[in-house]
């Protein structure tokens, strides 16, 4: 005990949980990307000292409970509607920094109209888009982003593109819209990619603070439970199959 107390000293501190993260136990599965991205957003908010200024809008999906994990004011939106909800916050509270946090079913399927139009209007907001190619919360159904041949509970023999269409690279569409100023695709599966992802999130929040319009960050993610793979295998599968189709990097940076 005495030895530990010798070590727990401020000068020895190399890492601390962000003060913007609450002490609630996260509801995410082991290996889930949500937890990492939550942490990055919390760190960015803390570093920018904007806890009082930030309003988050969370979706329907696994991250519906994001409001339990970041100690900021939150609005929980109906499925797919976060960009519309955040539009009103951005317009009526222009002094605030608003971000919408959405999954791929939420953003790229049921909420396609809302995200396209919010980005096209250039609403002054950050959009964080977690793309794991599957509906996690409802138990692993096919998403618009599910890769060809990928098995899910509603495409048990693999996604047949003749029947269900092609996986949707919505971020490429978003990048075409003049309202967006920063559109990037990131990952958060290695220390290096986590650092890059955090840089992108920081840039997006800086852009909104500078009233530059919409900054859009896709994070290519895993869903161990939905994919029925271990967290380590999920990361390997993501690198092998997701990255070739969802290529990482900036699509637009103005």
């Amino acid at each position: 005990m005495a030895e530990i107390n010798e070590i727990i000293k401020p000068e020895n501190l190399v890492y601390a949980k962000s003060k913007v993260l609450t002490d609630n136990v996260m509801s995410y599965c082991p290996g889930c990307t949500h937890g990492v991205v939550h942490k990055l957003i919390a760190e960015v908010i803390e570093e920018m000292d904007i806890q009082e200024k930030t309003i988050g809008v969370c979706p329907v999906g696994c991250s519906v409970l994001a409001y339990n994990f970041l100690d900021i004011d939150w609005q929980q939106a109906a499925h797919g509607r976060a960009p519309a909800v955040a539009t009103a916050v951005a317009r009526l509270k222009p002094e605030k920094i608003v971000f919408a946090y959405q999954g791929d079913g939420d953003l790229a399927s049921i909420g396609t109209a809302e995200i396209i139009h919010a980005c096209n209007r250039g609403e002054n907001m950050v959009v964080i888009f977690i793309n794991n190619g599957i509906y996690g919360m409802t138990g692993g159904q096919m998403a618009p982003t599910t890769l060809e041949g990928m098995p899910t509970s509603t495409s048990p023999y693999g996604r047949d593109i003749k029947m269900t269409g092609h996986p949707l690279r919505i971020t490429e569409l978003i990048a075409q819209l003049p309202g967006t100023n920063f559109v990037t695709r990131q990952a958060a599966h290695t220390p290096a990619s986590v650092r890059k992802c955090k840089k992108a999130i920081r840039k997006a929040f800086d852009n909104v603070a500078a009233k530059k319009g919409t900054s859009f960050i896709e994070v290519v993610s895993t869903c161990s439970s939905g994919w029925k793979l271990s967290p380590v295998k999920s990361n390997e599968w993501m690198v092998e199959h997701m990255f070739p189709f969802y290529k990482l990097g900036d699509l637009k940076d103005e």
């Binding site: 309003i55 809008v57 609005q75 939106a77 109906a78 509607r81 519309a84 909800v85 955040a86 539009t87 009103a88 916050v89 317009r91 009526l92 509270k93 109209a113 809302e114 139009h117």
Partner: peptide
């Protein structure tokens, strides 16, 4: 979208 904008504004 309009009613969800109302939601966002009312929530403020």
């Amino acid at each position: 979208a309009a009613i969800n904008m109302v939601y966002g504004g009312a929530a403020c």
